[in-house]
Nucleic acid binder design. Structure first.
Lengths: 228, 228
DNA sequence: CGGGACTTTGAAACCCTTCAATGCCAGTGG
DNA sequence: CCACTGGCATTGAAGGGTTTCAAAGTCCCG
């Protein structure tokens, strides 16, 4: 909003107004979208598309990844309910976005319709920029996470960040849509190390594991301390 | 351009037209910009700004970084001549952008003027999106580089990427504006390791070092082979 | 019940970090 | 002019953390 918003919006704490605008935006753009459901591992889009659509994920989860030349998979984005994705970011790198869960629901916004909508209303343009800035935030967060010195810090940061996502933070028990392998490929460490870090966090009492994919955070501060 | 461009632009290989539009865009936006010169280590902008400007770097170099809680510095972006930066990407993370070289020249585009310009011409909006997508590309490239398994691969990829930058690729001898420490903080490895990797690349004949900051790439393919 | 994907744990090998010391160069002040 | 300082670059050696390889356990689903 900041980079391109109207002057009145610059007096910041008008959160309601900002929130309303977001709602209006969602309503407007959903009017031009096509709903889809995807199966586990189903490809949603990839970097080959000459004319990429915009998408929003409604339920389930998706991952954006690239295969390194040595065969390893690098996940460069986790997509959770409410997140936009797919617009022409990072061209020519051979990335793929695919659903992680069965029944993952998405909305696809065809580019020519997004174009027309944006041309008709500057407010839409502002919100589209917000969407893209959000992606930049996520990527920077990932760089800062991967950049940590030790694997334990990376995993702790990952747990902190994912637990703050709007789609998870409300529930009392967090449910990871990701396997240990996915987390490993996101953090650029081995799945065994991820596993060991989770075990350590559990033994330290920083998280409680109800199952491999379900956990609670009894004391958020002690988790933050793990990141030093 | 793809995500928001006019229908005619979708027939891709109109590179000249695209290039011309870029030129027009630069001309238009430079008309609202303020030129500045910065000394080494001088701060250009930071994440505290409630209303961030857009910037473009003309000469010299800059780095975007965040200080980890353990005191280490993580560089999350290298800014070279021609690059845009500074718009509201990655809020609330306490980042700083500062000049690396003495005499670094930049143009600052005040946000309200960018706003007005965008509102007046949809073509400007398209180009601004291109600017932001470019930043996403760079960040993703960094994730893929940091995500490599071995330090030698990270350094080789770094050398490959920076040598492809428009502002460097034309010269016969590449001149790094960065110290080994900067490269280390960009790749999230220790400066000693960076140094050893450069030495190894030199001993393998993959690069020729004329000085710590100057090198040539006798055989690009063998450098690409270092990345596996 | 069996298969397959995922999770967990252990042990050894390897790579990177850390600590330390040296060298180099430019800028500064005596 | 020259010692001196600080920042950067380089190299070595030891220590530690992660990866790799291996094996066993769990759970879901056909």
């Amino acid at each position: 909003m900041q980079g391109l918003s109207q002057a009145p919006a610059y007096h910041p704490p008008l959160y309601n107004r900002s929130e309303n605008r977001r709602q209006d935006f969602i309503k407007a753009i959903d009017a031009i979208g096509n709903h889809k459901r995807c199966k586990r591992r189903q490809e949603i889009c990839n970097g080959e598309d000459t004319l990429p659509s915009w998408y929003r994920l409604l339920s389930g989860a998706a991952r954006r990844f690239t295969i390194h030349s040595d065969g390893r998979r690098q996940i460069t984005g986790l997509i959770l309910p409410g997140d936009f994705f797919g617009f022409p970011n990072g061209q020519d790198r051979g990335w793929i976005i695919e659903a992680i869960c069965d029944g993952t629901a998405i909305v696809e916004y065809p580019p020519n319709r997004v174009e027309a909508l944006a041309a008709s209303d500057m407010e839409i343009v502002h919100e589209l920029f917000q969407v893209v800035f959000q992606t930049i935030s996520h990527l920077e967060e990932q760089v800062l996470t991967i950049g940590r010195a030790k694997a334990a810090e990376k995993v702790a940061l990952f747990v902190l960040h994912i637990s703050e996502h709007p789609s998870l933070s409300s529930a009392p028990v967090m449910t990871l849509p990701l396997s240990r392998y996915d987390i490993a490929d996101y953090l650029a460490i081995s799945p065994e190390t991820v596993c060991r870090c989770f075990t350590d966090l559990r033994n330290q009492g920083v998280i409680r594991l109800l199952g491999p994919r379900q956990f609670t955070i009894p004391d958020r501060e002690s988790l933050e301390d793990c990141v030093q």
